[in-house]
């Protein structure tokens, strides 16, 4: 059985069917990239995996356990599934350190000292150790996003979901954030990421899924999708991306 199995997931907002039967399997240590136009359902799919959105039908299994439907301990599930958002979503009233240690202390039951020591190690590994006492508003977007990644990592998740985490950043800040993701990939963290950074997707992903209007139109290895896309819609999407100078 695969580590993460998404089978025939449907999701609607009112009458708007956003996911139309998405199935996908992710093995341990895999990095899966979701690409596709804006509004194709990438964010919604990621949010369904950690149950920020509830699926209408279909099932999602993590490590053999069903995580969709009633009776799932959501707070327990979310400890295993970290998510980083496009807009960072740091808590503005807390220092960087408090942002990172909030969940380990309140949810993980770790002592404050232990949590802070661990947070410091993580922050230093992304070059944010000196900003531990700073507040989010005083940081650049790239710095905030690095803190947000650390905040998710502090819960030691088994899967990380990254939702266009560089889309809101100034171009010169993108590299630092991607470098961290690259490192996590090398260390073998299982990840699903929605991204518009095609070059990066090509480099790190073991599997690329092209989403189109709420369905997986095509998926395969990065090489196959980018070099010889089979579906016409994939080809069109990629040629538009090339025109915009992103590939």
């Amino acid at each position: 059985m695969s580590f993460l199995e998404i089978s025939d997931v449907h999701k609607s907002f009112g009458h708007n069917e956003v996911l139309k039967g998405v199935s996908l399997t992710v093995e341990r240590h895999e990095v899966v990239c979701l690409i596709g136009a804006s509004g194709s359902g990438k964010s919604t799919l990621l949010r369904c995996v950690n149950q920020l959105e509830q699926v209408n039908s279909g099932e999602i299994h993590i490590d053999g356990d069903t995580v969709t439907g009633a009776g799932v301990d959501l707070n327990r599930l979310r400890r295993d599934v970290g998510i980083v958002f496009q807009s960072y979503n740091l808590f503005p009233h807390m220092s960087v350190m408090d942002n990172v240690t909030l969940a380990p202390i309140r949810v993980g039951g770790v002592s404050k000292r232990e949590a802070q020591e661990k947070a410091m190690v993580l922050l230093e590994s992304v070059g944010m150790g000196i900003k531990a006492k700073a507040f989010p508003d005083s940081l650049s977007g790239g710095q905030q996003q690095r803190v947000a990644i650390v905040r998710a990592l502090a819960m030691e998740p088994r899967v990380m979901l990254l939702d266009e985490i560089t889309a809101a950043l100034d171009p010169e800040l993108v590299g630092d954030v991607l470098e961290i993701v690259r490192e996590l990939a090398h260390e073998g963290l299982t990840m699903m990421l929605a991204t518009h950074e095609m070059g990066f997707a090509k480099e790190v992903s073991s599997q690329v899924c092209f989403l189109d209007q709420g369905a997986i139109c095509e998926h395969g290895s990065a090489q196959q999708i980018f070099e010889e896309p089979r579906e016409e819609r994939t080809q069109q999407f990629l040629s538009r991306v090339v025109k915009s100078g992103r590939l």
Partner: peptide, 28 residues
């Protein structure tokens, strides 16, 4: 709502989110 999403995605319960994330920001 993204603040709630962030807190809940870290595993905080509804009331923990209210107490540590929403109320402190709202009071200000």
């Amino acid at each position: 709502p993204s603040q709630t999403a962030a807190a809940r995605s870290l595993g905080l319960s509804y009331f923990q989110t209210l107490r540590t994330v929403l109320v402190p920001q709202a009071v200000r």
